[in-house]
Computed example of a mutant assay.
Amino acid sequence: MRRFLLALLPLTLLTGGCTAVGYDMIETASINPRFHDTKPIDFGERHPHRHQVHGIDVSKWNGDIDWPEVRKSGVSFAFIKATEGKDMIDPKFDGNWRGASAAGVPHAPYHFYYWCSSADEQADWFIASIPKAALKMPPVLDVEWNHDSKTCSYRPSPLTVRSEMQRFMDRIEAHYGKRPIIYTTVDFHADNLVDQFKNYHFWVRSVASHPSDKYDERRWAFWQYTATGAIPGIRGNTDINVFAGDAGNWKRWLTAMNK
C-alpha cells in the first residue's frame, strides 16, 4: 500500500482541489512529437496535446515494431498486451517486451479479461506468464465488453463484475507488489464501474470527446484518445494515450513505482 500511495502522490498534487471535470486541465506547453493522428478529432481546448507525456498500447495487431524508432518519435511509455483469459498469450508479447526494454521505453503488461473464466484461473495464468522482476510499471487489467467474441457472450451482473475484478487485482497486487491500473471503455464503465475502485488508477478510452464528457465523476491517470495514430516504427494505425500529469509528475510517478 505504501508504494501505491507514493505513486498516487504526484497525481494528488496535480489535482489539488480540482473537480473531476478539471482533473487533467494542467498548464503545460504543447508538444510536437514526430507522430500524428490520421483521423484527428477536434477536442477543443481540452485537446490531448496539452499533455506532455504521450504513449502507446500495442498487441499482435501492430505487427513487428521498430522500438528504437518508436522511442525517437517521442513515445514516453507503452502498454503491451500480455495475456487473455486463462490460457492465451499474445504472440508478439515477448518480442515487444524485449524491444521496449532495449529501447528504453517504460512499459507495462496488460491482461484482457475473459468473462467466461474465473478470476483465479486468469490470475494464475498472468502470474505464470509474466516474471515478477520484469515489472517496472504496474500491470493493467483491461475490462470491457467483448462484442466480437465467438466463445463468450456472458455478461455478468455489476456485482459479479466488481467481485471478479477485485479478486484478480488482489492476486496480482499480492504477487507483484504493485497495484494494477484499470483500463476500461465508456459503455463498460457506465454499466459497472461508476463510483467504484476509487483507490485505483484508471486508464480510460475516449476517442470521440474528452473523458470528462463520458465518464461520470471519474478521475483518470491515462487517456486513450485515438485508435488512428501514425507512429514511426509501427505500420498501420496505433492507439495513442496521454498521462494526466506533466513531465515532472511522470518522472516522479515512475520513480515511485520502482521503490
Rank of each mutant, 00 (worst) to 15 (best):
residue 2 R to H: 14
residue 4 F to K: 12
residue 4 F to V: 04
residue 5 L to M: 01
residue 6 L to P: 03
residue 6 L to Q: 14
residue 17 G to Y: 01
residue 18 C to Q: 04
residue 20 A to H: 05
residue 20 A to T: 13
residue 22 G to N: 10
residue 24 D to W: 04
residue 27 E to C: 01
residue 32 N to V: 07
residue 37 D to I: 03
residue 41 I to E: 09
residue 46 R to D: 02
residue 53 V to K: 00
residue 57 D to E: 08
residue 62 N to D: 11
residue 65 I to T: 07
residue 66 D to Q: 11
residue 66 D to A: 06
residue 71 R to Y: 00
residue 71 R to C: 00
residue 71 R to T: 02
residue 75 V to T: 01
residue 75 V to H: 04
residue 76 S to K: 00
residue 76 S to V: 01
residue 77 F to L: 05
residue 84 E to H: 10
residue 92 K to G: 12
residue 95 G to N: 15
residue 96 N to V: 02
residue 96 N to Y: 00
residue 100 A to F: 02
residue 102 A to D: 15
residue 104 G to A: 02
residue 107 H to S: 08
residue 108 A to S: 15
residue 116 C to Q: 06
residue 119 A to N: 12
residue 120 D to Y: 00
residue 121 E to D: 10
residue 126 F to S: 08
residue 135 L to G: 08
residue 136 K to E: 09
residue 139 P to N: 08
residue 139 P to C: 05
residue 141 L to S: 08
residue 141 L to G: 12
residue 142 D to T: 14
residue 144 E to T: 00
residue 146 N to D: 14
residue 147 H to Y: 13
residue 149 S to F: 06
residue 151 T to I: 08
residue 151 T to E: 07
residue 156 P to G: 12
residue 156 P to N: 13
residue 159 L to A: 15
residue 159 L to D: 15
residue 159 L to E: 14
residue 160 T to G: 11
residue 160 T to E: 15
residue 164 E to I: 05
residue 164 E to G: 10
residue 166 Q to P: 02
residue 167 R to I: 10
residue 168 F to W: 11
residue 169 M to K: 06
residue 174 A to P: 09
residue 183 Y to V: 08
residue 184 T to R: 04
residue 185 T to N: 01
residue 187 D to P: 00
residue 187 D to Y: 12
residue 189 H to L: 03
residue 189 H to D: 10
residue 190 A to H: 13
residue 190 A to L: 10
residue 192 N to Y: 02
residue 192 N to L: 00
residue 193 L to E: 00
residue 194 V to W: 00
residue 194 V to N: 08
residue 200 Y to K: 04
residue 201 H to W: 11
residue 205 R to I: 03
residue 206 S to C: 13
residue 208 A to Q: 02
residue 219 R to D: 02
residue 222 F to S: 05
residue 233 G to R: 05
residue 234 I to F: 05
residue 235 R to F: 03
residue 237 N to I: 05
residue 244 A to V: 01
residue 245 G to R: 02
residue 253 W to G: 01
residue 255 T to W: 04
residue 259 K to R: 13
residue 259 K to D: 14
